[in-house]
Design a protein around this nucleic acid. Structure first.
Lengths: 219, 219, 219, 219
DNA sequence: CATGAATGAGATTTCATTCAT
DNA sequence: TATGAATGAAATCTCATTCAT
């Protein structure tokens, strides 16, 4: 009976998938969670395999190793944000409304994608070493710069916005206002004794960001 | 200075000190550099001992272990910024000039103290777990919030600034504008194909930050 | 047997097994010997790995660490004595003969299993801290208490034994008479200048123990 | 002010004794406690120095090292029991009463001196290696063997005790009945689910031991 | 006599990766 | 394709002892 059980066990345990694509996707998802939670050096290959319910060996098969897996996670995360950005159509909007939407889009994306914040944080601690290595990411141009340029030009022409604003600088500012708040909410909450992660605080921050950006741009 | 030390050669290999304060300080300095460069999990106790020219055992003697050392580094780093902040006297300044100075102070401090940025990044990836544990840091209140409050009130009274701005929110904004730019300069430079670390870019960013904050506040 | 293994030489260095059960068992056996010889703190993980001809890492794989391994050794040692006790059938024996057999069984088990004595000694120095933690051991009830109870009752009924003897107290006494002699033979031999480990002494002690127990019980 | 405090501190900290004998005694007492609690390999030289409120260096000064200190502890512990035994005068007692007293003396000494039990346990795990090395201990002959011999002879002559009992064997038995119970009380309590350390249990054990010894000896 | 900072050797534990099946 | 046991290198941490003062 014991033997039978063991045999059954083995049959049941193995070959949960035999579906290469699913295995790959499971690893990628598990790795995203693990790298998000523990950073690059903190992440454990074993933990990823366990999370993915996949044999450790598969990680080496599909991604070459921990580094390759991290790079793949980084790439898929960047692809996701670039895809989301492509859904943003501001062409017909008036400069003020368009800018407000763009700012809110960025804020909401960060809110909905903590893994993006965390991975970017990890990457920055690494001096962007993996990102620099990825041709794929470098070729993914953000359409946001173009959108911002357009809005700034139309806004300046209509005398709604101040002139002479650098679109890259502004993009960094828009990202900074949300990113810093969210990625530092734990340290900031502790230091200010105020829960910056509470829904009310989050909502207030969204409004504040819009006001800062538009307040700065508005003539 | 480092070169001088190295030049003294083999004699310098050991910390012949017998000067506990110096030994402690050497470990702390070496650890700050190592944690800054490699994060918490990436830092190596051996590397710290070597950098400090100190026996590894001393780290355990003075700080209990890697974690205790990291906490000590974090605490000393926070103490340093709080001390710097105390030197900022804005009491007599007009609201606009005072705010400009405060914004520039923050920006310049971040520029001069990359270790602060990096450690904060590390700490955020850890969900502030060490910072929360440190009674010492929690008791170090930043005087900046009070200064911002005062400037906002006087500014509003004089009809120079808009009313109703939350000082904590504004502080986060001021920090965000500099912090994000600097800590993400590697990823951003790669993605925009533009060297954000170049002196010119740095100078331009400083001006931009001042303009954003004052542009937003000004009525 | 050990000699044979050693003779196979360098080929045998590694446990080429790929047989988890065998690897686990080899570690357990090596650990039992090492903990028996050197106690908990004195035992070396390296030594256990070498003895088991296994990579040190496997100890952590199978047992979690030194503590987990010690606990496993303790559990398997207790299981072994409980299993041996179950083979003792005294149901049909007259009280006197049954009691003699039980006493001799205990004495012989101790003689044949020095690892049990040593581990118990270690555990007692630790105030039974590991044993208390082991649900598995706590659930292994010794059948000896029941057997002693039965013999005492039948003996009292038949007017062969004195009445009112507590079976747990008697069990402790039976164990004490052999355990103390064996585990303290080194100190005692030194102090009395008499080799208590000599076969003759051992044989005499067995008889003495039987006489003490039966002499006490007999009416 | 700070300087003054520090100077005072140093003065106050050092030279608590400057009394060699007291220092030595303090170390010995602390070491006895530490070795009792943690065994030989488990004891920490640092812990002993701290317990004794003495500089670690003094241990090396007075005892040569950890091993020498352990030996000194062992010797002083044996001296103490031998001294206590010398206070026992049974010459005039009737055999039965004398034997009862001797048994109770042993039991009570063990109860009052857990450090003796623990050190003996440690020494046995070490195969009496330190004890064998100590000429001083080997020369301390226990007067108990002589007393037991006398009682047995007088008892046999008076037809109160059985004849042919070996006094060393009996001494071992007397010691065993108490020693095993006490040194194994933690394991035994756990396994029997019964608190063997409770005052009532202790009292009952004392009576049981007397009964076993006298029951065995009595004709 | 006394201090406690400093040391080196070695212990336990961790981890990414490879190998036999 | 999939498994998970096995590995070596290196990391963290511990400890008895020595040294400068």
């Amino acid at each position: 009976m014991v033997a039978t059980q063991e045999a059954t066990g083995k049959q049941a345990r193995r070959a949960v998938t035999r579906d290469p694509q699913r295995t790959r996707a499971a690893i990628l998802a598990a790795a995203t969670a693990e790298f998000t939670a523990n950073g690059l050096t903190g992440a454990r290959v074993d933990a990823i395999a366990t999370r993915a319910r996949v044999n450790k060996r598969m990680i080496y098969h599909y991604f070459g190793g921990k580094d390759g897996l991290y790079l793949a996670v980084l790439e898929s995360t960047y692809e996701a944000i670039r895809n989301a950005e492509l859904d943003l159509h501001l062409g017909e909007r008036d400069p003020l409304g368009g800018m407000r939407e763009l700012v809110l889009f960025t804020w909401r994306y960060f809110l909905a994608h903590p893994e993006f914040l965390s991975l970017l944080g990890t990457e920055n601690l690494n001096r962007a070493s993996y990102l620099k290595r990825s041709k794929r990411i470098r070729e993914l141009h953000s359409p946001l710069i173009g959108m911002i340029s357009g809005l700034l030009q139309r806004g300046a022409r209509d005398r709604v916005f101040r002139a002479g604003v650098d679109p890259v600088e502004l993009y960094v500012t828009i990202a900074a206002l949300g990113f810093f708040y969210l990625s530092n909410r734990h340290t900031l909450s502790t230091i200010f004794g105020r829960d910056l992660a509470a829904p009310k605080s989050i909502a207030a921050r969204g409004e504040h960001i819009v006001e800062v950006v538009l307040g700065f741009l508005r003539r």
